[in-house]
Amino acid sequence: MASRAHAQHRTDDTHPIVGHLVPMSTLVWTTLALLVLTILTVAVRYIDVGEFNIVIAIGIAVLKATLVALFFMHLWWDRPFNQIVFVACISFVVLLIALTVIDTKQNAPTLYTGNPARVQEVLDAKAPEAPITKQTGLSSPG
């Protein structure tokens, strides 16, 4: 019943009865990779690649998070359901982010009520002909 990760090693002093023992070398290599990635992400901050700065920064962060989850948190060897829990929770965060961002981006001009110059700028740039230009900072129901 127990997955491949939970083969039991009874009463062997160097092994746990339950769970999976990750060798120290794996942990150290993971740490080194994390530190290198940290230096890399700081370095990339000073290079201008336009829109891709944020993409690279998030990409490296995701990579680092994956390393932590898989090796420090033993998720690589863990039971499938625990992996599902982790991935499902992150998907729900992505869901929340995606739907709210889509909505606020749709409504973006009306968000700049504190900054009418910016409203005008956005309106002029993105939808010069759109009827929404008649609005000034007040949202309409759709």
């Binding site: 992400t41 700081v42 901050r45 290079i47 700065n53 944020i54 490296i60 680092k64 998070a65």
Partner: peptide, 12 residues
């Protein structure tokens, strides 16, 4: 923190 660091400190 791995996410907070680039999101706040490393904005180009």
């Amino acid at each position: 923190w791995i996410f907070l660091f680039p999101l706040f400190y490393l904005i180009h």
